[in-house]
């Protein structure tokens, strides 16, 4: 097990290098000159374009520019955005907030999702099962921007229960986290339900029931536990997705998060910004995935990591 962890940590090095190169190259390949549009509908002075191009190494061939970027990165220099702000500063500002938001959203999706999935799975075809199905459909077909705006207008502006936009407090992130977690919640609930339904039919559950264990204990300890592996996997993957993919929710609630940083970086063709933000994301994600893999063994003792 210890060796396995060390191995996995070792694998992070090539993945991080590969990812940084991949991202840097993709941003590089974006069509259009990032500075040509700086002057709105009129062409920019060539001298300005040249100065900026040189300043951000965009006139070097890709491998050279990448090496320069990595060289700086190793010495702790994350570079600058095109407006001269420090990328490292932005990362330090945005990651903590995004991390809070993501963890809250995960808590929402895990707690409510598992509860809903168990209730739906115990009595398949029952009222609760159908309720969960309908909720899933609602969440899937209402785009997140609609859900977010409705929640903001109703609970923020009309009822005043939550701050309308983020003010830096943890409480102001609760409503966005619920909106953010809602779609994943549907996935979790349905994953739990599906696996629970399957597992309730298995031998060991029958055996357990035959042994005279209470229904609660059978479901809680035996069936649910064995149903959790795909759920844990999904939540792990979702963690990464929510970290970088919360652009819409961040926008609606004016949260200065990482999703927005990546989005703006892509639009502005800022290789340094996108690469740095994504690299941190990959690191977080690799660790979460390692934890997920280790959790498999906890959930199902038959699984061993060699």
């Amino acid at each position: 097990m210890g060796r396995y962890v060390v191995q996995r940590l070792g694998q992070m090095v090539p993945v991080v290098i590969g990812t940084t190169f991949l991202i840097y190259a993709l941003v590089w390949a974006l069509p259009g000159d990032p500075f040509a549009a700086k002057c709105g509908d009129r062409p920019c002075p060539q001298a300005y374009v040249d100065r900026m191009t040189a300043e951000y190494n965009l006139d070097d061939p890709l491998p050279l520019a990448y090496l320069q970027y990595m060289g700086n990165l190793v010495t702790g220099d994350f570079g600058q955005t095109f407006s001269g702000a420090s990328v490292a500063g932005e990362l330090l500002q945005r990651y903590p907030i995004t991390l809070q938001l993501t963890v809250l959203a995960i808590v929402v999706e895990v707690v409510i999702g598992i509860a809903a999935g168990v209730l739906a799975g115990i009595r398949r075809g029952g009222f609760l099962d159908n309720l969960v199905l309908v909720s899933t459909l609602v969440v899937v077909s209402i785009p997140v921007f609609v859900l977010g705006l409705l929640a903001q207008t109703f609970f923020g502006v009309r009822l005043g229960w939550f701050p309308v936009t983020s003010d830096g407090t943890l409480y102001s992130l609760v409503l966005p986290a619920i909106v953010l977690g809602s779609l994943s919640l549907a996935f979790v609930a349905r994953l739990v339900r599906a696996n629970l339904v399957e597992n309730l039919r298995t031998d060991y559950v029958r055996t357990a029931i035959a042994k005279g264990l209470t229904r609660q204990r059978v479901i809680g300890v035996h069936a649910l536990r064995n149903s959790l592996i795909p759920v844990v996997t999904f939540v792990g993957a979702d963690f990464g997705g929510l970290l970088g993919g919360a652009v819409v929710v961040e926008g609606i609630f004016n949260i200065p998060g990482v999703g927005n940083m990546i989005f703006r970086g892509i639009n502005a063709h800022e290789g340094a910004t996108v690469t740095a933000a994504v690299t941190v994301l990959v690191l977080v994600f690799l660790i979460v995935n390692l934890l997920v893999d280790l959790l498999y063994a906890v959930i199902d003792p038959r699984i061993r990591h060699v």
């Binding site: 330090l92 907030i97 991390l99 809070q100 963890v103 003010d167 830096g168 407090t169 943890l170 906890v298």
Partner: peptide, 27 residues
């Protein structure tokens, strides 16, 4: 133990966030 691991991770993440988060209530 499993539950404590999960809760511990949550607590750490929230604490981390709280350290760097918007501290002076700008509003």
């Amino acid at each position: 133990p499993r539950r404590s691991v999960v809760l511990g991770t949550v607590a750490i993440a929230l604490a981390l966030g709280a350290c760097g988060g918007g501290d002076d209530g700008g509003e």
